[in-house]
Amino acid sequence: MAWALGASSNSPPFAPAVGANALPTMRAAFFIGVFAALGAIAQGGSISETVGKDLIDGVAISPLAAAAGLLTSAAFIAVGVRTGYPIPAAFATTGAIVGAGLSLGGAPAFDTYQRLGLFWIAVPFVSATIAYGTATLLRRDDVPEEVGVPALAGIVGVILANVRLAIFPGPDGQGTLAGFVSQRVGRIDLFGVYDLIGVVVSLAFGALVFVALRREMHASVDAGIRKFLIGLGAIVAFSSGGSQVGLATGPLEPLFDSLGTPSILLLALGAIGILLGAWMGSPRLLQAVSREYSQLGVRRSIAALIPGFIIAQAAIALGIPISFNNIIISSVIGSGLVVGSAGVSARKIGFTVLAWLVSLVGAGLVGFGFYRVLALATGA
């Protein structure tokens, strides 16, 4: 399953860079594997717990049910890789685990489904809107590129300072750079709500990123923009690893808990699978997402990645499994619409949306039936 994720859902973050000819396909596949694997270990815990424990009430996912769910979702994703129509891993995995869990005798977790559904429905609209607005801003003649692009990089820097990572201590095992510095210096509350030290650290980090990129663009505007695009791809690939690994490791959470095995080992197992999948299977979908959905330049590619980063980190903070295919494809479409609908393949989009719906419902039905078959075959 982790291999399938590396080949499919972790591919889109570098697709805009490939589409803009800022990075060759095979080199992008290498970077996807490395950064996604690091993100899986540093940020994968919250999504893994949601998938493993919150999708079904009344029963714990058994090893046999986990096997049925993982095999089902991996098969759906593999079909997407083979056909070039990316299957949202979050949809396929959620459907498969829910189906297997219901077949096991569990009850639907309607509160969780409502929370996931609202977030999933909002993602394409929010992602496309942010991408469209960003692309429009970058095309404005009254906003110099030497200011507009570094300003976007500064915003990304501010968010990065507040990204939860396992390397920083925190209440749930993950903290942020801003929070870590605030703890060391001494927290100062502003109006009883804001951490003043954290705000200062965030703004300072954003300013540092702004100044660094602006210096690059003074030397060469095109080279600076391409470096920012590749850097964004790395950050989004890191975020995708953190959000996607839980789809593979989540069903095994109850098993590892019962064995008393540290969860970091489970995340490392998922990270290895993602690394190998990205290196071996991602080039096909890199080409599909970068060239078949919309023809993007470097600037619109930047617009396509920024919402992916923001939404992914919000989902990780909330513990919501998401599909990076959904986010990035929506962003690619939104940024492509800046030059009109002619740059977007409506037929490809229509088939993709249909594939997404089929994957959610179909994986649930297949997961339900597959567990019954395995249970009969094993006498469980």
Rank of each mutant, 00 (worst) to 15 (best):
G80L: 06
I61F: 07
G117E: 09
A131K: 06
S46Y: 09
E146G: 14
T129P: 00
V81M: 12
Y113M: 13
I155D: 05
T112H: 08
L64S: 02
G154K: 04
G101K: 05
A74R: 02
P63K: 12
G154R: 06
S46I: 05
S127H: 03
A135K: 10
G148P: 08
V51K: 05
S48G: 15
S103T: 09
V123R: 00
L55G: 07
Y132S: 04
V98K: 04
L102D: 10
T112A: 13
L152I: 15
D111Y: 03
L64I: 11
S127F: 01
F125W: 11
F125N: 04
I61N: 06
T83M: 03
I130D: 03
Y132R: 13
P63E: 01
A66I: 02
I77W: 02
V51D: 00
T83E: 02
T112C: 05
P88S: 12
G154Q: 07
A96K: 05
P124C: 07
K53Y: 00
G101H: 13
L116H: 05
A60L: 09
Y85T: 14
T72M: 12
A75F: 14
P150V: 01
T94F: 01
A65L: 10
R139I: 02
P144E: 12
L64Y: 05
E145W: 03
A96M: 07
T136M: 08
T50D: 12
T83C: 02
V51P: 03
E49L: 15
W120I: 11
Y132M: 13
E145Y: 06
G58Y: 08
G133M: 08
L118E: 04
A100S: 13
